[in-house]
Design a protein around this nucleic acid. Structure first.
Length: 767
DNA sequence: TCCTTGCGAATTTTT
DNA sequence: TTCGCAAGGA
């Protein structure tokens, strides 16, 4: 039994505990150390596949089981609802229902919880609405329109993004520095931010960033409130610390001040959300932030083969900004990483598809295979291929249930019932179904609302008493207000499930869909039914609305076996036997835009993304790159990703599609691009100018195909030449060489000067 | 009010 | 190329 060093454990060694110590069994010494270091600040650097989740849950259970802390005095924070749920389930399994008492959730859900308690301190009511990204953008758009700003020049999405980044950094409108605002001088963005916040207050709404930002304001301006939390929450536990942004960091600091009983778990090598405001610096600086803190490294990997680990370690070693870890395993060597060069995207999809079927025949379940891409559009080619092959697949992270139009409409109705000042929701359904309230009416209402700084709801209530609108519109609005008032009054005495049905019927929304003859309409009605049944899981409307604004997730279909397609980002935290990593080409991965916008930092993050990809694999990794890719309709030739050459060559087995690895046209664009060798030979970065030059010259592979055919028919004699090992040959670019092996028209030649290459017979002359 | 047309943009997205 | 949005016409 582990020893304890905290005050009130005198009677902790009772019967219940000893039967619980099972959670410590099977932990390695480092893991055990991380679980038992319950005093002071601890940073657990948990490499990929080193049992991070196990440690986290064991530690949480340990705190409670050993009575180091009471469940309600522990704050455990994750980034995703999934992670929170998983932790809750696992801890409940160990220590039982006491786990319910732990403050466990995502940063945002815990932030919302705190904020609802003290909403009035930041000019909100406790029932404030949580806006999603869509709402935010619409709100920004409205402000811009009022300010007469050009939406073409400053897309609302972009401005909303800048404001979000400010919030990520803990900046309220007053705190945005002039320097900062000057970057967007044209648009008085700081002013828009300020107006945006004012609007949110009027709407009694908060966006995701506010859930934390308002907490910071509250903590700062109300020391007594902060002290209350500090006293109550004695032990903090943070998952995925490398992904925290400044606001989250400050939030944690406020709460951890004093006792400094904080345990952060993370992996600097898996920090891939910098573009969203995450600061790798938080984890890199941990020891400075919490002097005297303990750093524990988990380096024994229980997931991958040693080859996969060597490859991943070799790659990530190219990054400078890291704390450094060396993953090891006492498992098998495993297979080498397969790297395939293919002609184009279609060929890539075909090759991967074939490979998937081969594995399937060998008895590998589709559930154990995944294709991880850099950007979501890359899944398309694979989807098409799997459709032709009849291989079941699922795309993770696609369109979500709660984002569908009809669902959002229905939710908008519920939102207005629950919280009348929710303008965005009200506006969404004001004329849906059609109520004869057109643009003109809406503008009058907006005008009044802005003039008096009141919500649309109040503005409508006012305007129907005037003669400003057409009688028809006025009547229609009056009815709507009546309806909503009636529905709202039903909230108290009838249940929300029934209410939802009534609202959808009485508002005419169901009828509208019934009359709709479009092919989508029946599906939409189905979805609404599903929504109503989803309501059953909640105790009340408020709880439901909180859930859907914070937990917009997909229902997973795990009934049939299927291969998974997803982005590398979505793959973090998952693992599969067989991993496919297509599209490893400069510009695609590392992503060009990331390099352009964030330079060396961007490159490092891309590399971490590659590292995440590799370390998802239990058994095998197959990387591929295409020589030609279609980008927005035109063909571009591409060169293999530098990341390929950063993987130790000893861990790689390379296959190139016929003709690619050779000097294809002896001296044309391609040979410059990937000419000197098979692709692995290319170790140095291509200069930006060179890439530029290459991209400018885009080539349609069909044209090349034609060129190829022309050549081969013209050079029949050469084509028919038979090459045998030992033959001396001459190549335009590589010079003299000796044939080592021949396979059809594919030759392996040892060139006197240029080394060993694979080339196609038609490009060499027999001597 | 609805449909057409044309323009421009086009990574990653835990909440 | 393709999608989504906004403006303009019937």
């Amino acid at each position: 039994m582990p020893s304890l060093n905290v005050g009130d454990e005198s009677n902790s060694k009772n019967a219940g505990i000893s039967s619980n110590v099972g959670y410590l069994q099977g932990l390695n010494s480092k893991q055990l150390e991380a679980v038992e270091a319950v005093d002071g600040a601890v940073l657990v650097l948990a490499g990929a596949g080193t049992g991070k989740t196990r440690v986290l849950t064991a530690r949480l259970a340990h705190l409670i089981a050993q009575k180091v802390a009471m469940p309600w005095s522990i704050l455990a924070v994750t980034f995703t609802n999934k992670a929170a749920r998983e932790m809750r389930d696992r801890v409940t399994n160990i220590i039982g229902p006491m786990a319910e008492q732990v403050w466990l959730g995502t940063f945002h859900s815990l932030g919302a919880r705190i904020l609802r308690r003290h909403a009035e301190l930041v000019n909100l009511k406790p029932n404030f609405t949580i806006l999603d990204t869509d709402d935010q953008i619409r709100l920004i758009k409205q402000i811009m329109q009022a300010e007469n700003l050009d939406e073409k020049k400053w897309p609302p999405r972009v401005l909303s993004g800048v404001i979000q980044r400010w919030k990520d950094r803990g900046l309220t409108p007053e705190k945005v520095s002039d320097d900062e605002a000057k970057q967007y001088a044209d648009v008085k963005l700081a002013e828009i931010y300020s107006q945006y916040q004012d609007r949110l207050s009027v709407l009694n709404a908060a966006d995701f960033g506010d859930l934390l930002l308002h907490c910071l304001t509250i903590f700062q301006q109300n020391p007594d409130v902060l002290r209350e939390y500090q006293r109550r929450l004695t032990h903090l536990l943070v998952d995925e610390y490398q992904d925290t942004n400044v606001a989250q960091y400050l939030w944690l600091r406020f709460l951890a001040q004093g006792r400094q009983n904080i345990c952060c778990v993370g992996d600097d090598d898996q920090s891939i959300y910098g573009w969203r405001g995450a600061e790798v610096g938080n984890i890199l600086r941990f020891e400075n932030d919490f002097p005297g803190s303990k750093v524990i490294r988990l380096e024994q990997n229980y997931r991958s083969t040693s080859r996969v680990l060597t490859a991943a370690s070799g790659l990530i070693a190219h990054n400078e900004d890291r704390l450094g870890k060396t993953l090891w395993t006492d498992g098998n060597d495993g297979d080498k990483i397969i790297v395939r060069g293919v002609w184009d995207g279609e060929s890539e999809a075909r090759t991967v598809g074939d490979q998937v079927e081969t594995y399937q025949r060998k008895g590998v379940s589709l559930n154990e295979m995944a294709i991880l891409v850099r950007a979501s559009f890359q899944t398309r080619e694979f989807e098409e291929r799997f459709l032709t092959l009849g291989v079941p697949y699922q795309v993770i992270g696609g369109a979500r249930f709660y984002e569908r139009m009809e669902i959002r409409d229905a939710i908008a109705y519920l939102r207005v019932i629950y919280q009348p000042d929710d303008d965005l929701a009200l506006e969404r359904i004001l004329n849906k179904p059609k109520r004869g309230i057109g643009l003109a009416s809406l503008q009058s209402i907006h005008h009044l609302a802005r003039l008096e700084s009141i919500s649309l709801w109040l503005a409508i209530a006012k305007i129907i008493d005037t003669d400003e609108l057409r009688p028809a519109a006025r009547k229609s609005l009056a009815k709507l207000i009546d309806d909503f008032t009636r529905w709202r009054s039903m909230l108290d005495h009838s249940d929300h499930i029934e209410l939802a049905g009534i609202v959808l019927d009485e508002s005419g929304y169901t009828e509208m869909l019934l009359k709709d003859k479009s092919p989508e309409a029946p599906g939409r009605l189905e979805n609404l039914k599903e929504l109503v049944s989803a309501l059953e899981e909640f105790d009340g409307l408020g709880q439901f609305l909180e859930h859907i604004s914070l937990v917009m997730e997909n229902a997973e279909d795990d009934t049939t076996e299927q291969i998974s397609l997803m982005t590398l980002h979505a793959a973090k935290g998952l693992e599969f036997d067989k991993i496919f990593l297509p599209g490893w080409e400069e510009g695609v991965f590392p992503n060009q835009r990331s390099l352009d916008e964030s330079g060396a930092k961007g490159l490092e993050e891309e590399r971490r993304l590659a590292y995440v990809g590799l370390t998802r694999a239990r058994e095998t990794v197959e990387i591929s790159f295409a020589a030609n890719r279609r980008v927005y309709g035109n063909w571009q030739s591409s060169i293999p990703s530098r990341f390929i050459s950063e993987i130790p060559e000893s861990e790689i087995e390379q296959f190139d599609e016929m003709g690619l690895s050779s000097d294809f046209f002896g001296g044309t664009v391609q040979s410059e691009a990937w000419g000197q060798d098979n692709f692995l030979g290319q170790t140095r970065f291509q200069s930006a100018e060179k890439r530029q030059r290459l991209n400018v010259k885009s080539v349609n592979p069909r044209d090349i195909q034609v060129a190829l055919e022309d050549r081969s028919s013209a050079d029949v004699t050469i084509d028919e030449t038979f090459f045998a090992p030992g033959d001396r040959v001459f190549h335009q670019k590589f010079g003299m060489g000796t044939v080592k092996r021949s396979d059809g028209d594919k030759l392996e030649i040892a060139f006197d000067k240029a080394g060993e290459k694979k080339v196609i017979s038609r490009f060499v002359k027999q001597l």
